[in-house]
Nucleic acid binder design. Structure first.
Length: 549
RNA sequence: GGCCCCGUGGUCAAGCGGUUAAGACAUCGCCCUUUCACGGCGGAGACAUGGGUUCGAUUCCCGUCGGGGUCACCA
């Protein structure tokens, strides 16, 4: 009995690896092209950190004329959730981040390097495991989970490094005959990698983001094929990223410490190792401590949150890009109207330390992004959002022509209005333009019934003319203020505060409150224009009646 | 605990041996203005700490402290 025969005994049907090497040839890509991927497990909702990684991978690959693909890492069926893959695919779509290759639905995929779902690649992993077995670089391990647990406890009690290595690697030293014997006897086993490493030796690794990092060599005989016949992450990573011809593995930095193992795996498998770029995760401040955004505690951890809140897709991407490459902000200021695709993203300029998530800043970007949109765009996007999340808004927006006017107030000029940061704010922002049943009339400086009635009546009867231009319109309000004995100019009022009870601004406020039920609104002249004469007068009359109650 | 990563204003961060230590968000004040949002101007606010190396350290080295990650038949 030799290794070859043992390998045949374990995987009798596995193909030669040359078959796969030929089936998945090196990619014919321009020099320097980055092939990267997003490789999530379908074990829960898509995390903002995942989206961040995917965005970085996309940017890196697109900027270099490479490929970005989506691989599903579903080798742990226990943790899998329903619709996991669909969620991932749709989340990427929602952010206009559909992959060039890989899964495009729960069952469909595109690209020549598939299958892109690991559970469908079982025979490939087995072929490579067999290849390792044949060379004596892997071996079957008959230790039961109980054995492993016992070992762990012993190691812990003795305060020595835990794991399956050295003298603790019991099955490592079994003879081929003993192994074959046990297998023939029907004993359960898994396949372990026979690590050639030594803990007292160092390896050097140059990470694209973290820079030079030295580690002790890996000496753990890690499991490569589990009892269910599926590979562990490490083995699948090596086989897949080799076969899919990944050039850059861009992943969360929780993987940094397994780099020695991965490098060893690539080497023993005879693969050229990819470059690694370990990204620091997005953190959150929790009572003075930094921690990862948590699925349980933080709603904003789920990408679905942004969709539900209606935070513009581009705002999220700009915010993330900003964290990824701090030069983005400067670029954006210099190029306020360019699409983000034109930004020259640099993988190696990423920050090494983890950023704290800043919702305030995100929302600020949201404001800016929305302020640059046309009324038509704002209309379409809000409607699209509303159809999913707010029927009342859908109703409001029914009259498109009118809505475009409403949303067009103070929009499209040099200093566009910046008051909406997300689609879920639209309704509150424009409600009064559709509905004149105000909960209250919060009058301010001028608040006595008599003065208000007088102002409103005078305005309707004597001053309001829907055909006035803006200057005339405002001059008339000044006149009205004068007629009431208020200061016609705010400056004058400020110069002689004792001479007047109020000023033209206070008169405007009365009109504004009567018209909109609010103290703060966009330009009132435009509001009146959009509302139209009939509405304006009706609203003022209603306000007068309201005073009499 | 071992190993690894990180540490510039509240936050994101430029800077990488000599700088008045940028900028953005947030905050405060003023200006603009019929209100708000915007815009303009200005203010306050930082190199975790102790040792080295150096003529000179935010920048380089070591320790300390602080934060994070990792040590599964999970990814």
């Amino acid at each position: 009995m030799n290794y070859k025969e043992l390998a045949d005994l374990i995987f009798p049907d596995a193909k030669e690896i040359s078959y796969y090497e030929e089936k998945y040839p090196e990619r014919n890509l321009p020099e320097g092209a980055i092939v990267s991927r997003f490789a999530p497990s379908p074990t829960g909702f898509v995390h903002i950190g995942g989206l961040y990684q995917a965005l970085v991978a996309i940017e890196a690959s697109r900027k270099t004329g490479g490929v970005f693909f989506l691989r599903i890492e579903d080798t742990d069926q226990k943790r899998e959730i329903e619709n996991g893959v669909t969620d991932i695919v749709n989340s990427l779509k929602d952010f206009d981040m559909a992959p060039d290759e890989g899964m495009i639905s729960d069952t469909e995929e595109i690209g020549k390097y598939g299958p892109y779902k690991q559970s469908l690649r079982k025979e490939i992993y087995q072929a490579y495991a067999k290849y390792l077995l044949e060379q004596g670089k892997a071996y079957p391990c008959f230790c039961t989970p109980e054995d492993d647990e016992e070992r762990r406890v012993k190691q812990e009690n003795a305060k020595i490094r835990p794991g399956y290595y050295g003298v603790w690697a019991k099955c490592r030293n079994l003879t081929v005959e003993e192994m074959a014997e046990k297998i023939k006897n029907g004993e359960n086993y898994i396949i372990r990698f026979k690590s050639p490493g030594r803990e007292d030796r160092k390896i050097k690794h140059k990470d694209v983001i973290k820079g030079n990092v030295d580690f002790p060599e890996n000496d753990q005989d890690i499991v490569i094929i589990k009892a269910d016949g599926l590979p562990t992450y490490h083995f699948a990573h090596a086989v897949d990223d080799h076969l899919m011809r990944t050039t850059h593995v861009i992943r969360s930095d929780e993987w940094l410490s397994s780099v020695p193992l991965h490098l060893q795996l690539f080497h023993e498998l005879g693969f050229k190792a990819p470059k690694y770029a370990h990204i620091s995760p997005i953190m959150k401040n929790d009572n003075g401590n930094k921690r990862k955004l948590s699925k349980r505690k933080d709603p904003e951890a789920a990408v679905s949150y942004y969709k539900e809140e209606g935070i513009p897709v581009n705002a999220v991407k700009e915010y993330l890009l900003n964290i990824a490459n701090s030069t983005f902000e400067n670029w954006r200021r210099a190029n306020p109207d360019k699409p983000i695709e034109e930004f020259d993203f640099q993988l190696n300029k990423m920050s090494v330390s983890g950023a704290l998530f800043d919702m305030v800043k995100l929302l600020d970007i949201g404001k800016t992004v929305i302020s640059k949109m046309t009324a038509e765009e704002v209309y379409e996007k809000s409607l699209e959002w509303a159809q999913k999340y707010d029927k009342e808004l859908v109703d409001m927006l029914k009259d498109k022509e009118y809505s475009l006017k409403v949303l067009g107030i103070e929009r499209g000029n040099k200093k566009p209005r910046k008051d909406i940061s997300k689609w879920s704010e639209v309704k509150q922002n424009i409600k009064y333009m559709y509905d004149d049943n105000f909960e209250e009339y919060p009058y301010q400086v001028i608040s006595d019934k008599e003065s208000i009635e007088k102002i409103l009546n005078l305005y309707i009867e004597k001053y309001y003319d829907e055909n006035d231009d803006k200057q005339t319109w405002f001059d008339k309000i000044k006149e009205l203020a004068g007629e009431m004995g208020y200061a016609k100019e705010v400056k004058e009022f400020k110069a002689n505060p004792d001479m007047y009870k109020a000023h033209v601004g206070d008169v405007s406020t009365v009109l504004r409150v009567a018209l909109t039920g609010r103290t703060n609104t966009p330009d009132m002249y435009e509001i009146m224009k959009v509302l139209g004469k009939e509405n304006v007068i009706n609203r003022f009359q209603k306000a007068i009646k309201e005073m009499e109650k």
